[in-house]
Amino acid sequence: MLGFIKKDLLLVKNNYKTILISVIIFILFSFSNNTDISFILPFMMLVIIISTFSYDDYNKWTIYSATFPNGRKNYIKGKYIATIILIIGITLINFILSFLLFSIKHSIDLENIIITYLGCIIAILSIISILFPFLFKYGSEKGRIVMFILSFLVFTFIGIISKFNLKLPSNLLSFFKDFGIYFICSLVIIMLISSYFISKKIFLKKEL
């Protein structure tokens, strides 16, 4: 499995220019105005991670990896673990940059920054949980279409909520205030684990 994680990290390393440009955009934006674009690096990383599926399909690595001992299982494990490492890693870098930038601007709201970044990780891991089984089932090309449909549905949902000013029931709201972060984190972990097992089931049966 370690070999597969290394492979994905090496592929992502080759995208360092894209990541560097994203970091520069992030710094420039944060300095020049008050727009919060803290999501940019983790989301950029998500796009890069999804592109590793395309590389694997295009370079026939997916097929080759099935010839290794435990190849299919380790391919899936490697993808999930490399993704988690990369998302958490880039979010930490983003967090440190935010912290430094806001320190310079003398306006640190540490709690707010932590909540923003935690939210970012949770959002991306949720997307991954839903998206990965589709990528394993249909491959990278069709998987991209699923990603667009998912994004469309999420934004439509958010749009509907804001347009009709829908509110959560007060007892549910207080539940989220008291236990929300633990509840959501547990939910995301359950989603990720379920997603892994679904992907595994799909990929073990798949004709490559």
Partner: peptide, 29 residues
């Protein structure tokens, strides 16, 4: 599969990697 070596008809290494990277990956495969 530990005892089988394979060459497939299509090329199958990630094109952005080097032979050094392949060694780095395969030693854990």
């Amino acid at each position: 599969k530990e005892d089988i070596g394979v060459v497939l008809d299509d090329e199958f290494f990630p094109e952005l990697l080097t032979a050094k990277d392949i060694n780095y990956i395969m030693k854990d495969i």
